[in-house]
Design a protein around this nucleic acid. Sequence first.
DNA 1: GTCTATAACTCGATAGAC
DNA 2: GTCTATCGAGTTATAGAC
Lengths: 181, 181
Amino acid sequence: MRAQKAEEILDAAEKLARSGGYGGFSFRDLARGVGIKSASVHYHFPTKEDLGIAMTQRYNERFIHGLGDPRGEGTVDEKIARYINAFRTSMIEDRLMCLCGLFGAEVTSLPGNVAEETRGFFERNRDWLMAVLADDTRFADDDARERAALTLIAKLQGAMIMARTMIDVDVFETILEDPLG
Amino acid sequence: MRAQKAEEILDAAEKLARSGGYGGFSFRDLARGVGIKSASVHYHFPTKEDLGIAMTQRYNERFIHGLGDPRGEGTVDEKIARYINAFRTSMIEDRLMCLCGLFGAEVTSLPGNVAEETRGFFERNRDWLMAVLADDTRFADDDARERAALTLIAKLQGAMIMARTMIDVDVFETILEDPLG
DNA sequence: GTCTATAACTCGATAGAC
DNA sequence: GTCTATCGAGTTATAGAC
């Protein structure tokens, strides 16, 4: 188990990073958020890269775990709806973007290991969606399933960025109206 | 007409911003790129916001103009292919992302007027695509055309971010295989 | 138009006391 | 674990000489 204070720091970091990206938060911001000084943040995470890795790993694992078993109960369309809802809920209710969507956009500014974790997010999302689609007769083979999975992820990431930039949540709903279309 | 040096500065800024975003370039970077000092960059563009506005306006107008008349010669599918190719070419040949895709991801860090221009990019892209689709019997009404337009933009922006993050250009091609599907 | 010099600030990171 | 204090580097931006 990680120390309780470290989790609080990661909470604050995730909230800020899911709004302003990797460059959108500083050690001073995090310190203010959890009621300590920035030097004390360095005690828990020596460098920003350490913090970035821990933050992205935690986000990825929590996200994938929250999706549940891709082969579990429910129809394909229900699972796809739940997948979309994972993004929709945090965006609309908490104004939080996808951490790895923002990190992906600034990948050239990320430390190498943070970029690696960001890539892993997309790979794991693709694999989860392909597993969901495994039994669906609408898709002939693995190539078709991979195409549908990658396309849905791209639509979601693009839709979130566009909806926030255009200040219009309907943009998100419009784009996701026919998720596998 | 803008001064020649100002255009050189905008060229350098656009190249850097289309890789690292708005926070990915500094006045010193631009100065080094055009062979002057950072104080001289401020002569041409007093603040970074001034530069950001000019850069985004120029990018938007050049991009839309480069697309040509949405009601001109050619089939719908040819025009859609040209639209996609505008992104594909700069990404693959010059490793340049869409300026406004990256800006959209960091919109909370942008000066207000730069965020406005970024929003305008997506609106003008949507309108151009809707004009292209105006005569296509595959779309029943304006709502269907708007949905197809926004979805294609989202797929493209998401595909570029994912392809670069996953270090796999095939991701882009796979997602754009069936552009209006 | 471009320069030198510098102000004023923020950043990540460290030393050392407690 | 947290603090004060600080370092060195980066940032945008300005004053004033040439």
